[in-house]
Simulated assay, not measured.
Amino acid sequence: MNETRVNRADTSMDDRMITSYRGVPFTGEVVDYAADGTMIELTSYQDGIEHGPQFEWFPDGSKQSEGQCDHGQAVGEWREWYPSGQLARYDQFNEFGDVLKTQRWNESGELIEDYTSTPPRRDQD
């Protein structure tokens, strides 16, 4: 029987950071729940490695963070929010997981960091 969504409590992680379910590297969604049963985290995996959409929610159900992983590397746009709903952080990664841009705001919405980087060059043969 193939599971597509399992509870994190039913998984294990080895010293190579591979997440397994029933002794096999897991492909699907791993979820965490608050004490009241509210889903507070959803992490996608492929063959035991974070791959795909990632989400976290505050206990009240409002979004805490979201992003995407590609074979264990953060890629694309990632966002984090304060419990008030105010955007707290924005990160942009290239396809290799290099940070291209980081912005942070305080709880009042004031931009307190705005960083853009030039990732290392990777020559394609």
Score class of each variant (00 low, 15 high):
63 K>Y: 12
117 S>C: 04
65 S>T: 10
36 D>V: 00
79 R>P: 10
19 T>D: 05
92 Q>G: 01
85 G>Q: 03
100 L>N: 05
17 M>W: 07
71 H>F: 12
119 P>I: 05
122 R>H: 09
7 N>L: 14
34 A>E: 09
58 F>A: 11
18 I>T: 08
90 Y>M: 15
93 F>H: 14
19 T>Q: 08
92 Q>F: 10
7 N>C: 04
98 D>F: 05
122 R>T: 03
35 A>C: 00
13 M>I: 13
95 E>Y: 03
15 D>N: 11
37 G>L: 00
82 Y>R: 14
125 D>M: 08
60 D>W: 09
120 P>V: 11
9 A>K: 11
50 E>F: 07
6 V>T: 08
100 L>R: 06
59 P>L: 06
52 G>M: 10
72 G>D: 11
42 L>E: 10
26 F>M: 04
49 I>K: 10
15 D>Y: 05
54 Q>V: 12
52 G>Y: 11
106 N>W: 04
32 D>I: 03
25 P>K: 01
10 D>W: 09
51 H>P: 03
65 S>Y: 09
113 E>C: 03
16 R>G: 01
13 M>S: 08
56 E>L: 06
21 Y>F: 10
81 W>M: 08
10 D>E: 14
74 A>M: 13
85 G>W: 03
30 V>M: 09
49 I>F: 05
31 V>E: 08
87 L>G: 06
97 G>Q: 02
3 E>K: 08
107 E>P: 00
15 D>K: 11
41 E>D: 02
52 G>S: 10
118 T>A: 01
100 L>D: 02
112 I>P: 04
70 D>E: 12
69 C>A: 14
29 E>M: 03
78 W>R: 14
110 E>V: 11
101 K>V: 10
123 D>M: 05
51 H>S: 15
76 G>M: 08
61 G>C: 13
1 M>G: 06
121 R>H: 07
4 T>F: 06
77 E>V: 15
73 Q>L: 09
71 H>P: 00
67 G>N: 11
105 W>V: 07
24 V>H: 05
96 F>A: 07
52 G>C: 08
115 Y>L: 14
25 P>N: 01
5 R>T: 15
32 D>E: 15
29 E>Y: 08
30 V>G: 04
43 T>W: 05
36 D>L: 00
86 Q>W: 07
13 M>K: 09
17 M>I: 05
84 S>A: 13
46 Q>A: 09
119 P>D: 00
111 L>D: 11
91 D>C: 10
